[in-house]
Amino acid sequence: MDRGMVLFVGALLTFTSSWLGLVLFPFWQLQNQPPYRSEPTDDPYPRPLQGLAWVGMKVYQQSGCMYCHSQQIRSDRFGNWWEEPIGMMRTGGDIKRGWGLRRTVPRDYIYDYPTMLGTMRTGPDLSNVGSRYSALWQHIHTYNPRAFNNWSIMPSFAYLYRKEKIVGSRSEKALPLGREWTVHPGYRWRPSEAEWELILREQGTYILTSYLAETPQPDNLNLATLQGKRQLLEYWLATPEEDWQLVPTPQAEALVAYLLTLRKAEYPLPEAKE
């Protein structure tokens, strides 16, 4: 046989073997899983994403969230840790960290497209994040994660929020954040000593009045001292900007709606019991 032919047939056969084994066979094994009902009258689980949550999934997808956040819970026998004197332990870290109540199984993903299992845990797993946090928490955290966790290295998604001048009264959707976080969206702002002096000269009395009005037991704050000025600055930074508000764009609303639907690891499925 011609060498070219040997090569062709050989390359074809070796590759076909893996194609059959790793692609077609799992395809055949997992392709037609129905949603689960414990009683015939129950709502089926899982359900396809709909409406806003589906749009939010697209935001999640095109922002590459899954490159830091996985969506899979491994079993409580997965994950090893050894330490003296106990030796090797199986920790089941995913479940013990509170990321999910049980391991995830293929059926949890039958409506996912794309299925973003994730490859990396620079951030925590999100399979079940919908049960952990409120919409407001998600909004503030998406806007700037360091508003909650100063150690966080997650990017700020401030570009999903719009800073606008307040016309009339503040919007209900506006993020309740201090000016520290809103003056430069995406960053943490703090005036320099000189700037703070300038601000104090212009609005000092106003800020002090509102401080005294809002603090239940105002201590003796002396604006002549450096310490007093710093104390007032901390208060002022935590108050919202008077004329500006930050509102979520539709994309941000959608993303948070999607995050709230992520409850993959709690509905009891028979095959996930072990």
Partner: peptide
């Protein structure tokens, strides 16, 4: 990944997209 304030504020240069 270690300085999250670097080039923040733009959708084009957000970490996930740049990584892809």
């Amino acid at each position: 990944l270690h300085s999250p304030y670097f080039l923040t504020g733009s959708s084009v240069l957000t970490f996930g997209r740049v990584r892809m």
